[in-house]
Amino acid sequence: MRIDVLTLFPDMFQGPLSESIIKRARDKQIVDIHFHNIRDYSTDKHNRVDDYPFGGGAGMVMQIEPIATLIDKLKSERPYDHIIYMTPDGERLAQRRVNTLSLAGNLMILCGHYKGVDHRIREHYITCEISIGDYVLTGGELAAAVLIDSVVRLIPGVLSDETSALTDSFQDNLLSPPVYTRPAEYNGWRVPDILLSGHQANIDKWREEQAHERTLKLRPDLLGKSERS
């Protein structure tokens, strides 16, 4: 997979995307991530990429020209499965969307700033708008890093145990069951006996029951139930 990130602050990605699973995926050349500074495509002598909004109002808006120029350049070099805009008013990111994006060959991600991008970019270039929650960040970089991490870890060959991702929370609209490891007893707190029984069928049943119970208690919306049901 190739991921092209359009941003005003490429260095913000160096920490989160240069460690752990993402570093391994990049080192193994399973994913190829490129960062493009939008300012490099400005026609202003000061590399300005924002201006006041038409109609007045507070804040600044990212200009259409440098973004459109960069997107057109990248599109001329390869086809993209999606051109994604990270925005608070986008589709709330969910595991089903992550699963779909993990199958893509080429993704482009645009990180907004200020009051956002000139809406013509969203109308004519963007194919998918994603939010990581109902709150506002300084820019789209941190949200983009979250999206990249969630997608890349699902690509075959990234995780040492590829079946691990299949048992993560939200894969079946369920939260994960409790997990334990050695020692079996600590400070008088014991691991549930069923997990030490060696009876895999009973263990699987227990885990399924726990997953349903935790989901019903903590996230009933995932089961299509109201919090008062």
Rank of each mutant, 00 (worst) to 15 (best):
I3V: 13
D4R: 15
V5C: 12
T7P: 01
T7C: 02
F13D: 01
P16T: 06
E19D: 13
K23P: 12
K23A: 10
R26T: 12
I30M: 04
R39T: 00
D40W: 11
Y41R: 03
H46W: 13
V49L: 06
V49I: 09
V49Q: 09
G55E: 05
G56F: 04
G57Q: 15
A58S: 12
G59E: 00
M60A: 05
Q63D: 05
I67P: 08
I67N: 04
A68D: 05
K75L: 14
S76T: 12
S76F: 09
R78S: 11
H82D: 07
Y85I: 00
P88D: 13
D89P: 09
E91N: 06
E91Y: 13
L93T: 09
L93I: 06
A94H: 15
R96S: 13
V98H: 00
T100P: 08
L101A: 03
S102W: 02
S102F: 05
L103W: 02
A104W: 09
L107D: 01
I109D: 01
L110W: 01
H113M: 07
Y114F: 08
Y114M: 05
K115F: 02
V117D: 01
R122K: 12
Y125S: 02
T127N: 03
S131P: 07
S131Y: 00
S131G: 05
Y135N: 08
V136Q: 03
T138C: 13
E141V: 15
L142Q: 14
V146T: 10
V146G: 00
L147T: 10
I148A: 07
I148F: 03
S150D: 10
V151C: 14
V152W: 00
R153S: 01
V158W: 00
L159S: 12
D161E: 14
T163G: 10
L166K: 10
F170V: 07
F170M: 02
N173E: 14
N173C: 12
L174A: 07
S176F: 09
Y180R: 02
R182I: 13
P183K: 14
E185T: 13
Y186G: 11
G188Q: 01
R190F: 03
R190Q: 09
V191H: 07
I194W: 04
G198P: 06
D204L: 13
K205I: 09
W206Q: 06
W206M: 05
H212G: 10
T215P: 02
L216P: 11
L216D: 06
P220C: 11
G224W: 00
K225C: 06
K225M: 15
K225I: 12
S226P: 14
E227I: 14
S229D: 14
